[in-house]
Design a protein around this nucleic acid. Structure first.
Lengths: 211, 211
DNA sequence: AGAATCCGGTGACAAATGTCATCCGCTTGG
DNA sequence: CCAAGCGGATGACATTTGTCACCGGATTCT
C-alpha cells in the first residue's frame, strides 16, 4: 500500500533455527539461505541454546524441532512467549501428533510443519508466518481439537515408565506409590485408550502425542 | 599428474539422494548443491524409487536414509550392489546402531554417517567415498564387530510383535506357533538380552539395531 | 456442616507371563 | 546306523498383570 510498509515486507526475514541433528540443521539452513529474502542469523542444537539465541537476536521467525536435549522445542517456544518476545514461532517436527500440535498452539506457535512435507513449503511458511498468518495443516488441526488427551498426570507418568519396560513394582518405587495403586492407574489408562495391555496402551498414547 | 586424470578427479561428483522426509531431502540436496563440486542429479522418497534412479543415472555416489517406506535403505543398497552397479553407497541415518552398521557394510556400503554429525562432514564424506575411501565412525565400527546379534530369527520375530503390544496368544496365531512355544522363545530372548521382561527386551534389541 | 470429589491404598481373583524340564520328529554328520 | 542338534510342543509352577469393589483422608462446592 505505502512505501514504508513495502520496505518492511520486502526486507529479508531474519531467522533462527533449532534442531538437534547437526546434518539436518545445516541442511535446513542451506535450504533457507538459497531464498534471497531469508537469512539464517543463528543456529542452535538444543532448546536452551535456542532460547538464548532468540532472546539475543530477536529474529522475525524462530524455527524449531520438538524433540531435543536439555529443553524441548515446545518448552522453548513457551519460554520465548513468556519473555514477551515478538518473534513468531514455527514448530518443525517428524510427528503428526495431535497432542504436540495442541501444546504447540497453547505455547503460542504460529506454525506447525511436518518434516515430510515438500521442501519448498518451508520458505513459504516462513514468509506467511512473518506476515502474521498461521500455518497449520487443517486436517491435523481438526484432529487436535476433536481428541483431547484423556489421561491424568499420574496415568501419564505411570504409562511412560511402563512403556520403558519397568514392572509395576519398579514404577511404584520410582514414584513413591504402592504397587496396587500403580496397577490401578495402569488399568484406568488401558481402558481409557481401548488397549488390551500396558504395552499397547503406551504405544497408542505415544502416537497421539500424549506420552 | 596428467591432464586427463586431473579432468576426471576435478569434475563434479554426481549424487542421488534418498530420504522419506521431503523437507530433509530438499534440505540435504541444497546443502550439497552449494558445494561447487557436487551435483544432485536425482532424489527419491523411498527405496524402490531410489533403486530405479540409481540404476538409471549411474551416479558416482548414492546417499540413503535407512528407514523408508516400500524398501529400506539397506535393502536398496544391497539390491544396487547385486545389480553390479559401480555406484558407491553412503548410509545416512539417525541411529548409531551396531546392527544397522553391520548390515550396511554387509550390503557393500562405503560410508555410514549419523545425522547428528556436523553438516560439513557430509560433503567431505561424499568426496572421500568418491575417491574410494571408506567413511565409518571408528568407535561405532568397533562396537558393531564386538557385539554380534545373539537372537535367532524366531526370537526376533516374536520379540518384534511382543514389542508392538501383542499378547503371547496373538503372536502364536500370527506366526502359526503354539502359545507355549512363543513364551519359550520370549523367555530365551529375555535371558539372552539380560532383560527383566518382554518390554525391556524389545527396547534393548531395538536400540542395538537387532529389531 | 454436609455432600461430592479426588487421590491413594487394600484385598481378592482371574488371566497373562516367565521359567524349566521334558518330549517328539527331523536333519546332519560321523 | 546312530548320536547329536534343532525347531517346536507340553505341562506344571511361581510371578506379574489387569480388573473391581471398596476404604480413608483431604479438598472443594454449596
Amino acid at each position: 500500500m505505502n512505501p514504508t510498509v513495502s520496505k518492511t515486507s520486502r526486507s529479508t526475514v531474519r531467522v533462527v533455527i533449532a534442531e538437534d541433528q547437526g546434518m539436518v540443521l545445516g541442511a535446513l539452513a542451506a535450504l533457507l539461505e538459497i531464498e534471497g529474502d531469508i537469512s539464517v542469523i543463528a543456529r542452535a542444537r538444543n532448546g536452551k541454546e535456542a532460547v538464548q539465541a532468540v532472546l539475543h537476536h530477536k529474529p522475525d521467525v524462530f524455527i524449531t524441532d520438538i524433540e531435543m536435549p536439555e529443553m524441548t522445542g515446545l518448552e522453548a517456544a513457551a519460554e520465548i512467549k513468556r519473555q514477551r518476545c515478538a518473534t513468531r514461532v514455527i514448530i518443525l517436527t517428524t510427528f503428526a501428533r495431535a497432542g504436540y500440535l495442541r501444546r504447540a498452539l497453547d505455547a503460542g506457535a504460529s506454525g506447525y510443519l511436518l518434516k515430510d512435507m515438500r521442501a519448498e513449503e518451508l520458505a513459504e511458511a516462513v514468509r506467511r508466518v512473518h506476515r502474521g498468518l498461521r500455518v497449520v495443516d487443517p486436517e491435523l488441526a481438526a484432529e487436535a481439537w476433536s481428541e483431547p488427551d484423556p489421561l491424568t498426570d499420574r496415568e501419564r507418568q505411570v504409562l511412560r515408565l511402563a512403556g520403558e519396560g519397568m514392572s509395576s513394582g519398579d514404577i511404584a518405587t520410582n514414584l513413591g506409590l504402592s504397587e496396587g495403586t500403580v496397577r490401578n492407574y495402569l488399568s484406568e489408562a488401558i481402558s481409557k485408550l481401548g488397549a488390551a495391555n500396558r504395552v499397547e496402551a503406551a504405544r497408542i498414547a505415544r502416537t497421539k502425542g500424549w506420552l
